[in-house]
Simulated assay, not measured.
Amino acid sequence: MSITLSDARIVTPDGVHHGWLTIEDGRITHVGQGPAPGNGHGLGGLIIVPGFVDIHVHGGGGAGYPAGSADQARRVVGFHRRHGTTTALASLVTAPLERLKAAAAMLAGLCAEGLLAGIHYEGPYISAARCGAHRPELLREPSVTEFAELIKAGDGHVRMFTLAPELPSALDAVRECVDSGVIAAIGHTDATFEQAMAAIDLGASVATHLFNAMRPLNHRDPGPITAAMVDERVTVEIVNDDVHLHPSVIDLVLSAVPGTRVTFITDAMDAAGMPDGDFDLGPMKVEVRSGVARLAGGGSIAGSTLTMDAAFRRGVQTNGLTLPEAARVTSLTPAHVLGLADEIGSITTGKYADLVLLDDTLTVQSVMKRGTWLTPPPGTP
């Protein structure tokens, strides 16, 4: 089946072009400028961007991955797809090991279906001093044996593991990540610059929500933030929700770190898309007030209520990114992190047709996954 979308502003890595594209068997076969040859589905000048790729998300739409329920996981996927996320990891939080392994086994089945791109363990091998919304009594020192069990539970679908490199045996865990084909991420850490660099030298390649739950940057104690920003081997995650980071800090990162090493994430939890109220994040109780999620009793920030389309909008409207720059940090760079950039992440011939249609306010109008409309545009046959 062939689909031609015409009269659109198409955002590609090299610019924004008014034109058309053709899709066959779920892949983009042609991208052209000007009027489409033959008949196409006219989009009235809508903007087409690549489907968003979220490498750090816990929940949304009133459901969460840490709950270990396949029904909840499907609801999370559906919610974020409506907001333009066509590829995502399922992020778990610190919990008892057996609960983590059970959740990973359930999520592995959804990965095998193609609903998810993999599993992300955030904890339990993180710093008590920087634990944020993770339950302190459940934190553990890394064990290579335990680590191997957690990887095995994901049945080949564990893609990323966040840990604190200063913990005993943490560097052994980084080595195990690399040997297992799992992305080692530095996060929830009180590491010094030198400790962070030791992990990077062994293959750690992502900084989990840069600045948040990390030893602060100091002019004589640069810490993990500086290590991640200056090392070209590391991609830094940014939660662009006006809560986790001041906009000027995001501007600083965007000016200091190439967009090829910056990825926006949501770090969303169950409350994304829901009214204020009380929610769970794994074993932790969370209060959401005015859209801000914190541990019950006014504690640490506990994930976000962000969606990737909102992060994209903020990148353009608040941080001054061009549309191609915003597409890079919400699609292409995270696709590179996952090793999927040959298949997704940009509007390029040969890649899957994972597409998001936006209006002039950058609000999602329609979403396509591999050439199939999840939310079709008006007038679609």
Rank of each mutant, 00 (worst) to 15 (best):
V206I: 09
M229L: 15
R175P: 02
K285F: 00
S2W: 05
L362G: 11
I265R: 04
D231L: 13
A311L: 11
A199H: 10
Q365H: 13
H244G: 04
V158C: 08
E141N: 10
A129K: 13
G34Q: 06
E343A: 12
F161C: 07
T226M: 15
Q195C: 04
G84M: 12
L100R: 00
Y352N: 15
F193L: 08
K101G: 09
G181N: 07
E149D: 13
E194F: 02
T372I: 12
G187T: 06
R314S: 14
S290E: 13
I48H: 08
G42P: 10
L362P: 12
L217V: 12
A310P: 04
L150S: 05
H83E: 09
L97V: 12
V182P: 03
D25N: 12
G291I: 07
G123F: 01
R175V: 13
S255F: 01
H188P: 06
V257C: 15
P136T: 00
L210K: 05
S366V: 10
K351D: 06
T4D: 05
A296H: 00
T349P: 14
A105S: 15
P222H: 13
Q317C: 07
V178S: 09
H209Y: 02
H83W: 09
I48A: 14
F279M: 03
T333A: 02
P381W: 08
Y352Q: 13
K285R: 10
L374Q: 06
F147W: 11
G44D: 06
I151L: 14
P283H: 00
D251F: 04
E137G: 01
P96A: 02
I186Y: 06
L43T: 12
T322H: 14
G315Y: 11
G154H: 08
H120A: 01
P224V: 08
Q195S: 05
G379R: 05
A88W: 01
D309T: 14
R140V: 10
R261I: 10
T363R: 10
D278I: 07
T307R: 05
H157A: 14
T189E: 04
I23N: 10
Q72M: 09
I265M: 02
A67H: 05
M269F: 01
L100T: 01
T12M: 09
P136C: 03
V253K: 08
V316Y: 10
A95G: 01
K369Q: 09
D280V: 02
P378W: 04
A112P: 02
E237W: 08
L97E: 12
V76C: 01
G282R: 00
F211T: 07
A164E: 02
R370V: 03
L355M: 15
L107W: 01
P275G: 11
V257N: 15
H17C: 12
S346K: 04
G350T: 04
A95M: 06
P258D: 06
G350M: 04
R81V: 08
S205T: 11
D7A: 03
A105V: 05
G277V: 08
A170V: 11
G315Q: 09
D231G: 13
V329E: 06
A104H: 06
T333F: 05
V16W: 12
P334F: 05
G371H: 02
V234Y: 15
E24P: 07
L21E: 07
M1Y: 09
C111P: 03
Q195M: 08
L21F: 10
A129D: 11
L89E: 01
G15N: 13
T189Q: 01
A268P: 04
R130Y: 06
V243I: 14
R175M: 11
Y65I: 02
N218T: 12
